[in-house]
Write a protein that binds this DNA or RNA. Structure first.
Lengths: 209, 209
DNA sequence: CCTACCGATCGGTAGG
DNA sequence: CCTACCGATCGGTAGG
């Protein structure tokens, strides 16, 4: 409603209100999918949220499931990048250091892509799209478990807990932050990453030293 | 189809197939709700799973939402019992001891009531029933945060991480087990509880001592 | 981008 | 008049 709007150069061959491109629809969709659940969110809900009609949504998007798939791919691409780098052996870098690094960088991804990661963590496998996402996710879990096993094997992690169990619990703790983290809240990303690494690697108990 | 069936004492005034009481329907419903999601599960799916018709389900149950509410109450009642006991101050028992105890007993509840707790942890607040459950869950979270704060105050937990953050991460790790724990799997309940308390309180890192 | 719809399926209930 | 269901269909709404 600003006066300057009329002075803007004419958009080339665009009718209707602008600003509702695919990515804006995707953002709104993922937010609704997380707030109410994928199945409980109708395309009509999404349209209303965007101030559009339902058919207008389908001008930009081919299906509800496509929106889900794009969000899951976004989360999986980011996590794959982090895990792949951490899984790569490098001269002079221990598995323990790479494990700490992947925890820290995972927190960064969860914060920066919280909406799509949240969606990923709730996938049940109800469709081809969801099954494909679960498959990619299992690959990530396997890599992380192998990294934990390497850290145990090199002697830097305690060996009295099964590595596969350590991996599940450690990244269970990391992943849980999508349930409560708010960017505008009391804790910033670095603080959360520090808290997780401190708890996981050094423990909560205060030891007299 | 066993021959002995005909020899059983006549059920008193029961026609139709027996064995589909409220609790059996609830068990099947919760299992389906978790496997496919609440909204993605139709009462027809549930009927098929039980070998009944949909109206037969409604003879035992007043609504789909009632099934959800009963499962959530089951989980919340168990967790409330555990948290209430752990929150009660007792002579000669430190907050640290009560915190370790509530972690261990939470694992027991998550294993024994995994289906209903899983459902609880996925509630989004889409209905009155879900909002009521979220309210009870917040009460539990607040009690646990207070217990962590007490343990820090008495000097038994490190004070360089905010207690509210510790509480979220610690029980985030505990709760994450509903995502992968299987009773028939490699780890029993006690092993998981030991692993969680070891990681959380003593840390993963191997320190030369 | 909208109005006007479709095939199907939803949770829940009628009579018997 | 009861318990335990069935075949069919209700009013609405889903994705498209």
């Amino acid at each position: 409603m600003r006066a300057t709007e009329q002075a803007e150069p004419a958009p080339r061959r665009r009718r209707g209100r602008p600003g509702h491109d695919q990515s804006a629809i995707l953002r709104a969709a993922v937010e609704l999918f997380n707030r109410r659940g994928y199945d409980a969110t109708s395309m009509g809900d999404l349209a209303k949220e965007l101030g559009l009609t339902k058919p207008a949504i389908y001008y930009h998007v081919t299906s509800k499931e496509q929106l889900l798939g794009q969000a899951l791919d976004d989360a999986l691409d980011e996590l794959t990048s982090v895990v792949t780098e951490a899984s790569t052996e490098r001269a002079g870098v221990t598995a323990y250091q790479r494990l700490r690094e992947v925890v820290r960088r995972s927190v960064e991804v969860l914060v920066a892509h919280q909406q799509s990661v949240t969606l990923l963590l709730r996938v049940r496998g109800n469709s081809e799209v969801e099954l494909a996402a679960l498959s990619r996710r299992r690959w990530l879990d396997d890599r992380l478990a192998a990294l934990v096993a390497d850290a145990v094997a090199e002697g830097s992690l305690r060996d009295d807990v099964p590595p596969a169990l350590v991996s599940r619990l450690l990244f269970g703790m990391v992943n849980s932050l999508v349930e409560w983290y708010r960017a505008e809240g009391a804790y910033d990303q670095a603080m959360v990453a520090d808290a997780i690494t401190t708890i996981a690697f050094d423990g909560l108990a205060r030891h007299e030293s």
